[in-house]
């Protein structure tokens, strides 16, 4: 019996010690951040969003004063992780690495996901990912013009790959086809969904599909290696990673420029303005961070840190464009 009471008292001591540990970490908005911050990456390890979150997490602590831990919560094309952050406590300790796919395309297309595109505190866009449309070098299409002509001549015969239903790659091609005047853009090409952007790019490299439109970072090595032929890039100017790719503007379709991938930092809705100001301030300092700029460029992205209002406008515009498109093309999933 004595050993039992001893055991109970030890447990009680342990519990008390843990309780103290816990209460110390209770934080107020004024001294934010007072403990490590979790940055949720909604896509799997190794992808563009994972790399973006890990590069951000490697520099952000020097401006916020606390470690930033990247946590992958994957599933359903970024929806699982986004839904989690959207429902988290708005204390600034749970942030989301927002992406074009999970934050604008999916909310525009899928009615069955548990958040709307603005169910977040948009802290700031951090980088842009130029979108390149490319075809395998073994295919006969030398330019976007030839490609579009081929699609028009063979409606429904050619195919494009995507990272899954509701991914940026999925709306990209119908959008391009529509703006370039192909009739019935939703069914003019065959949509072949893969699991993830890497697999979609590989399918194009192997020539199993005719076209892929995705982040330049996923394609540059294949373009440099001569396996893929870039047909178009959606930035205003040509980029060094694919000099031979004409811009959409050069081709006479500046409206295509709405199609640009991005990463951003989001928080749960209704965050304390003091906390958001601190994070946004830190992001503005990261803007000048040499290491971060170097890493981001090396990954094929364009450093592009926006303040609060510009982020809101940027995201609103893109969401508006996508939701109009999917409504017109009847691509909404109930």
């Amino acid at each position: 019996m004595t050993s039992n009471t001893k055991f109970m008292s030890t447990v009680a001591t342990g519990a008390a010690a843990l309780a103290v540990m816990g209460s110390v970490s209770m934080a107020m908005a004024a001294d934010y951040p007072s403990k490590p911050i979790t940055l949720v990456a909604p896509y799997g390890a190794g992808g563009a969003s994972d790399m973006a979150s890990r590069t951000m997490a490697s520099v952000l602590p020097s401006y916020l004063g606390q470690p930033v831990m990247v946590v992958n919560r994957t599933g359903a094309g970024g929806v699982t992780g986004s839904a989690y952050v959207s429902k988290s406590k708005p204390d600034g300790y749970t942030l989301l690495l927002a992406r074009i796919g999970s934050q604008t395309v999916s909310p525009a297309m899928k009615k069955n996901i548990p958040y709307k595109y603005d169910d977040f505190t948009m802290l700031g866009v951090i980088e842009l990912n130029p979108v390149i449309c490319a075809t395998a070098s073994s295919k006969p299409y030398k330019s976007m013009k030839e490609f579009i002509a081929a699609v028009k001549a063979n409606p429904g015969k050619m195919s494009f790959s995507s990272a899954g239903v509701g991914s940026m790659l999925h709306v990209a091609v119908p959008l391009v086809l529509k703006l370039m005047g192909v009739p019935n853009p939703k069914d003019a090409m065959n949509h072949i969904p893969y699991k993830g952007g890497g697999a979609a790019a590989t399918a194009a490299v192997g020539g199993h599909v005719d076209l892929v439109c995705t982040n330049s970072s996923a394609l540059t090595s294949h373009i440099a290696g001569g396996k893929l032929r870039p047909l178009m890039i959606t930035t205003k100017e040509r980029q060094a990673v694919a000099k031979e790719a004409p811009t959409a503007r050069e081709l006479g379709f500046p409206e295509v420029e709405v199609l640009v991938g991005w990463s951003g930092i989001y928080g749960p809705p209704n965050m304390d303005p003091k906390i958001t100001a601190k994070i946004r301030g830190a992001l503005q300092k990261v803007k000048k961070d040499k290491a971060w700029n170097k890493f981001t460029k090396a990954l094929g992205s364009v450093p592009y840190i926006l303040d609060g209002p510009s982020t809101k406008k940027f995201v609103d515009d893109q969401f508006g464009a996508f939701s109009t498109l999917v409504k017109e093309l009847d691509m909404i999933i109930e």
Partner: peptide
């Protein structure tokens, strides 16, 4: 050889190449 990651692990290694400005593939 191609810059194509066969699984998640090699996808992460691909990221490490790219961070250092190296492009796996024929190049």
């Amino acid at each position: 050889a191609l810059g194509v990651p066969g699984d998640v692990i090699t996808a992460v290694i691909l990221g490490a190449f790219m961070i250092h400005g190296l492009q796996p593939g024929p190049i």
